[in-house]
Amino acid sequence: MQDEHAAIDQRGHRMKQAEPIEWTGYLFVAFFAVPFLLFNVGPILFGLFVSLTEWNIIGSPDWVGAANYLQALSDPWIHQAFTNVLIYGLLIVPGVVVLGLGAALFVNAGYPLTGIARTLFFAPHVVSATVIGLVWVWLLDTRYGLINVYLGRVGVDPIPWLTSAEWVIFGVSIASVWWDMGLAFVLFLAALQDVPKDLLEAAEMDGANRIKRFWFVTLPLIRPALSMVVTLQLIATLRIFSQVYVMTNGGPAGASASPIHYIYNVAIERYLFGYASAIGVLLFILILVVTLLHRTVLRETV
């Protein structure tokens, strides 16, 4: 009994002695933490304050309480921007998931030349929005764009991809899928490479064809990756801005505008910083809800 106490004391004592607090750790973290607090955390808190004021670039803020938020709820442009971004999500997320998974399965199958396939499938992801936007403005040109010329050869009338309100979200979405697919592809490929080969071989022995093997063996095993890709892409799409700005600048008549494009307009064209910050907070809440939903779903299914 006494020996035991002595042992515990000794252990506790030894722990304190052998593991002193390394105060230098705080210094090491501080180099990162100071800019992080100033430029990541600070603006968020400052934004919450600004969203409750009326503040243009000159002059000082006037406290208006929740007025910006109330105004946002009845602003038809905001309704349009948030509706647009949901349509973007319905087009881009499935496009990226299906093509990314297809490309990853293809590269993972061990065919010849898949090394170059891996490089090229990912390549669009490393260039800037300006490159994506301008290439696709040219490819989707109504009269001379490559897409419509080839469609014309099989008898399809020219589609006004970027100049009509009906088609413009499709046009921007095609470019966005081309830009974003690489990330999904890489994440799927990493997940596929972790699928145990012997499981697939066992299923093959049992007579499962490749569709069954994919559906009953591969797909359940890569579900975490699938869920992650869907969430990452959904969040990326809710934040869609640069390609919209470059390709259409939100037009025609706001038909392709996204929430961040509208924030940009409100802040830069109209100098309504309080109002722009309030829309930012609303968008953040939407993204937070999506992220938390994803966590809940992930916990239940894994």
């Binding site: 973290v29 990541n40 304050f49 910050s277 930012g280 992220t291």
Partner: peptide
């Protein structure tokens, strides 16, 4: 390195990833 609050600090850094930069860009 061993110092109090190490885990919490890391969690704060990670949590910030949930906040899209676009939200803080106007106030900044």
């Amino acid at each position: 390195m061993r110092f109090p609050g190490r885990g919490a600090i890391f969690m704060v850094f990670l949590a910030s990833l949930m906040v899209p930069t676009e939200v803080s860009v106007v106030p900044m």
